[in-house]
Simulated assay, not measured.
Amino acid sequence: MHAFFLAGMVPLFIGVLLNDYAYWSSYELQWKNFASWMLIGALVFNGLAMLGSILSLVRADKRMGTPMAYFLLLMVTFVLGILNSFIHAKDVWASMPTGL
């Protein structure tokens, strides 16, 4: 299931970046809306992957550090995504160039 959630999360975050760049270069409002919706989807997939990593962290052998690193990377990605969603929640003209 981890691969499924990561396969959904990574392209959505890349799509957010590309939509933010398109909005930055054209100032067309719809690009910001696309980025906001894709960010919500990426955060949902990220949350589900983080839930799966918590389960694998509980079930893992205590000597292995890989599940903890995986969980921490997902946590950092989730926090950065939340911060990006706060930036996207601003007014359209106030969200650039920090949205990119």
Rank of each mutant, 00 (worst) to 15 (best):
2 H>D: 13
2 H>I: 11
4 F>G: 07
4 F>D: 14
4 F>E: 15
4 F>A: 13
5 F>T: 03
5 F>G: 01
6 L>P: 00
6 L>M: 14
7 A>K: 14
8 G>R: 06
8 G>C: 08
11 P>W: 07
11 P>Y: 06
11 P>F: 08
12 L>H: 10
12 L>M: 12
12 L>C: 04
13 F>M: 09
14 I>S: 13
15 G>Y: 03
15 G>Q: 07
15 G>C: 02
16 V>F: 04
16 V>A: 03
17 L>H: 07
17 L>E: 11
17 L>S: 11
18 L>W: 07
19 N>G: 00
19 N>K: 05
20 D>G: 02
21 Y>G: 04
23 Y>C: 10
24 W>H: 14
24 W>S: 13
25 S>A: 04
28 E>P: 00
29 L>S: 10
29 L>Q: 09
30 Q>S: 07
32 K>S: 07
32 K>Y: 01
33 N>F: 04
34 F>C: 02
35 A>C: 08
35 A>N: 07
35 A>S: 14
36 S>C: 05
36 S>L: 11
37 W>T: 14
37 W>L: 11
37 W>R: 09
40 I>R: 07
40 I>V: 11
41 G>T: 09
41 G>F: 06
41 G>K: 06
42 A>Q: 04
42 A>E: 05
42 A>I: 00
43 L>T: 00
44 V>A: 01
45 F>S: 12
46 N>I: 00
46 N>T: 12
48 L>I: 13
48 L>E: 10
49 A>Q: 03
49 A>F: 05
49 A>N: 08
50 M>E: 12
50 M>W: 09
51 L>P: 02
52 G>M: 09
53 S>A: 14
54 I>A: 06
54 I>K: 07
54 I>G: 03
55 L>A: 14
56 S>C: 05
56 S>W: 01
57 L>S: 10
57 L>N: 08
59 R>E: 07
59 R>H: 01
59 R>W: 01
61 D>G: 01
62 K>S: 09
62 K>H: 04
64 M>R: 15
64 M>T: 05
64 M>E: 15
65 G>H: 03
65 G>L: 09
66 T>A: 15
66 T>C: 13
67 P>S: 05
68 M>C: 06
69 A>R: 08
69 A>C: 03
69 A>I: 06
70 Y>V: 09
71 F>Q: 12
72 L>G: 10
72 L>P: 00
74 L>N: 11
74 L>R: 05
75 M>V: 06
75 M>E: 13
76 V>R: 01
76 V>N: 00
77 T>E: 01
78 F>R: 05
78 F>A: 15
80 L>M: 15
80 L>Q: 12
82 I>D: 08
84 N>E: 10
87 I>M: 14
87 I>W: 06
88 H>S: 08
88 H>F: 15
89 A>L: 11
89 A>M: 12
89 A>H: 09
90 K>W: 05
91 D>V: 08
91 D>S: 15
92 V>D: 13
92 V>H: 12
94 A>K: 14
94 A>F: 05
96 M>D: 10
96 M>I: 08
99 G>D: 05
100 L>S: 03
